[in-house]
């Protein structure tokens, strides 16, 4: 009532003031919302979610990968009517879910090797096709099993357009073996093989690869990045991917409290910050073309993200910011420009 212009407001609130039933002002970004119908809620909000990755697994406290895997597979289970097979690369996810004599998986699941998940999934999909079954196939692995050792099989699966959804849980390093560098490790990050020593401490700038872009270059029907910090976006992408046949790739950013040197309670916060600073662009592409970018909601300087993690502690020694912080900010800025991460989100 402090604004004189408000006198023009009619008795009814203007349209934009009336809530859209998408999500409400309260809990717009939460997992569920008691105020909307069951069907509109996320899979994770449902008491009937499949918990494809169930309790009792041996992931570390606050494991982002355990979370990301349940998010993705539960969504895929719902999308496929539970007619789903998963193939798993060697890595944390495999080790913490299936140590004899217990498994945490509740769907048919196969682990073969570190570097062949994509190819094994191709074989499973081929079997389903030849058997005339509608069963869908997912391959999953960490960034090491995907961007490094599994990359050849992945690329082969892509170029053949095999009917497999490959999900990479990207925690930016070889965490299972004790936090070594992978080609997905970001610049400056300290790992056991890129120690914070010497004139260029941590991982070297200008190295590494961003597999989503390479996936896009294969012209496959669907590529997306996602984050455990945005469940709705993640589930939407999995559901969308499941509706498509052919090779599909989703890379999910999953913070690793152990490898990143952060408190276990900060897992989702870290994922959120990685997106909100622009370091981890969240986008989707179809048939070789980027079609959507998830906008940054509350932009933060990358510094705030880096400061939360011990793997970047060497950038803030002595209370002074290392010049590399500005270099990483420049990477964020480049992502923001490249993918158009600022501005209003269009309807998806």
């Amino acid at each position: 009532m402090t604004d004189v212009q408000m006198t023009d407001v009619p008795a009814l609130a203007p349209d934009e003031a009336q809530q859209k039933l998408k999500f409400y002002q309260k809990g717009t970004f939460t997992v569920g919302n008691r105020l909307i119908s069951e069907g509109e809620r996320s899979v994770q909000a449902s008491q009937a979610r499949s918990n494809a990755l169930t309790s009792g697994h041996r992931a570390c406290q606050g494991c982002g990968e355990a979370l990301g895997a349940r998010y993705a597979i539960d969504a895929a289970m719902r999308a496929s009517g539970n007619d789903l097979i998963a193939v798993n690369a060697t890595g944390c996810l495999e080790v913490f879910t299936t140590p004899y004599p217990e498994t945490s998986w509740q769907l048919p699941w196969l682990h073969s090797l570190f570097g062949n998940a994509a190819a094994v999934a191709t074989g499973v999909a081929a079997a389903m096709r030849v058997k005339g079954k509608k069963t869908r196939v997912i391959a999953q692995g960490g960034d090491g099993g995907t961007t490094d050792i599994g990359f050849q099989c992945l690329s082969g699966m892509f170029e053949r357009n095999d009917d497999v959804l490959y999900i990479c849980y990207d925690n930016e390093g070889y965490m299972n073996t004790g936090v070594q560098r992978s080609s997905a490790t970001p610049p400056a990050a300290r790992t056991a093989t890129t120690p914070a020593l010497g004139p260029e401490p941590g991982n070297v700038f200008g190295t590494g690869k961003f597999v989503p872009k390479i996936a896009v270059a294969h012209n496959i029907p669907y590529v997306a990045t996602a984050t455990v910090a945005d469940l709705h976006d993640l589930e939407r992408k999995v559901v969308k991917a499941m509706a498509i046949h052919g090779a599909r790739y989703i890379q999910i950013n999953v913070p690793c409290p152990l490898g990143w040197g952060a408190p276990s309670c900060d897992t989702i916060k870290l994922a959120r910050f990685a997106v909100e600073c622009g370091l981890y662009p969240i986008f989707e592409a179809e048939h070789g073309r980027v079609t959507h970018a998830r906008k940054i909601r509350k932009q933060i300087p990358v510094r705030e993200y880096l400061k939360l993690q011990k793997r970047y502690a060497h950038l803030f020694r002595g209370g002074v910011d290392d010049p590399r912080v500005a270099r990483i900010q420049a990477i964020c800025d480049a992502h923001i420009a490249e993918y158009g991460l600022l501005g209003d989100d269009e309807e998806v």
């Binding site: 570097g115 190819a119 074989g123 081929a126 389903m128 058997k131 050849q152 099989c153 082969g156």
Partner: peptide
């Protein structure tokens, strides 16, 4: 029969592993 041109021998046997585990004669 699905005839799959793979990108390496490693993939060839891996595809066969997947197919066989899924119940196909590979």
């Amino acid at each position: 029969c699905e005839f799959i041109n793979v990108e390496s021998e490693f993939a060839a046997l891996s595809v066969a592993i997947g197919a066989s585990a899924a119940g196909a004669r590979a």
